[in-house]
Nucleic acid binder design. Sequence first.
DNA 1: CGGCTTCTTGATCTCGATCAATCAGCGTGG
DNA 2: CCACGCTGATTGATCGAGATCAAGAAGCCG
Lengths: 248, 248
Amino acid sequence: MTVNTANVLGKRRSLLHEARCQNCSLSSLCLPLALELEDMEQFDAIIRRRSPLKKGEPLFRQGSTFDSVFAVRSGSLKQVTTEGSGEDQVTNFYLPSELVGLDGIDEESYPGSVIALETTTVCEIPFDRLDTLSEHLPELRTQLYRSMSKELRDDRKMMRLLSRKTADQRLASFFLNLSERFRRRGYSPYSFRLSMSRADIGNYLGLAVETVSRILGRFQQQKLVDVSGREVNILDLEALAAQAQDPL
Amino acid sequence: MTVNTANVLGKRRSLLHEARCQNCSLSSLCLPLALELEDMEQFDAIIRRRSPLKKGEPLFRQGSTFDSVFAVRSGSLKQVTTEGSGEDQVTNFYLPSELVGLDGIDEESYPGSVIALETTTVCEIPFDRLDTLSEHLPELRTQLYRSMSKELRDDRKMMRLLSRKTADQRLASFFLNLSERFRRRGYSPYSFRLSMSRADIGNYLGLAVETVSRILGRFQQQKLVDVSGREVNILDLEALAAQAQDPL
DNA sequence: CGGCTTCTTGATCTCGATCAATCAGCGTGG
DNA sequence: CCACGCTGATTGATCGAGATCAAGAAGCCG
């Protein structure tokens, strides 16, 4: 019976490539990671696939009402918050398998806009259905708690970076962070493409664009990385890691 | 029957003042806020009361294994993370009704030490039991999600503060934040006592102690606040709010 | 009182912001 | 196919907010 259901679902979505969690290459990183096949089908049933976002297109805008969280399937996004008269602040970048929108639960509206940095596809997960489903699936619940907890932890790291680290350390940390995230997703930790502009990086790290550019140049001279445009090659991960730590 | 159980529990804990959620003055702000009386008793049953912490005493230390979250009952605490060789970073202050330790779920260890800033009592909530209980109590689950989501949202605010705001704006924001939190807890939003040192404030806001001191002096001259030692009187909340926003 | 720690105040220095060009990509249309 | 214009990236010169260094002052507790 279960198999039957699966087939029906499979057919109905046959036009979308890998349109089910079971086939998704990210399933080992994504929210349903701990689920049994049968449970995963339940989870899969509440997901809404979205047509791909083009570069610059918003997934949602700051202030719009919260009703779903989103899992990134491919591509990448940035979160941007605008406050009062002040200029924008980039508060996060999202890569495949990461969960977007968790900070909207509390006040039932999204605290920032989330915008595609390149062509990007996401899975929409209606939160009320996720919540209901998590009632019967402890693993799913745990995973949801973990995701939020991890984000809290990462935020603490970011605060440290912003309040204690020098510009060089920030850039080094940023590259290491990306490198590690790519590694975990099965991509090369040494060679990747930045989907965000220098301005986005600077804004995120609390630095002026010019500073980002200068330090990238310096890193290049020191043979730490090779950057040309948005193409990054990490030449000396060790040294970069050393650079990233705050000094004695 | 319910009443009976309540009485029994009441007697068993009769030595501890207000030792039950039903009687707690914070119940309208704390985790079980949305629970019916009956459900609250279930929740109450999993809570472990702790003997008060003295000033400077740690609730737990960075790296120790996670098994509980804690609700602050009275007093206040700071979260401090140490990374590598670098010096400490104060990442949060916790006031009564706030939930401590949520960032420990993910890696099953606490990412920072949490230390009492004055005599402080907390309610210990074993997380596995909380999780199990939340299975049957949707309101509790929602509240837990909300708490984490709110913390994420607050973290974003903090990042903006650290990467875009001037020293003056940071201090102003800090006072406004405290003021609002006191107000919500039924205390005066204008007059309160800082339980943390200047060093803690500076560390938290990414400023040198000297800068904190100087700006406090300046605020005093401008008749925004009246600070003597750790006693704070907000004289002009409006002007302080204006000061806190980032300028055009 | 003395010996702490915490806080304040003053003088100087530095990192990164800001201002100002210039340059490189890159899509668009002639 | 190339000239044009626009946006994004680099590089150089200057400036300023806040860190750091260095004393004092003021609590605080034995």
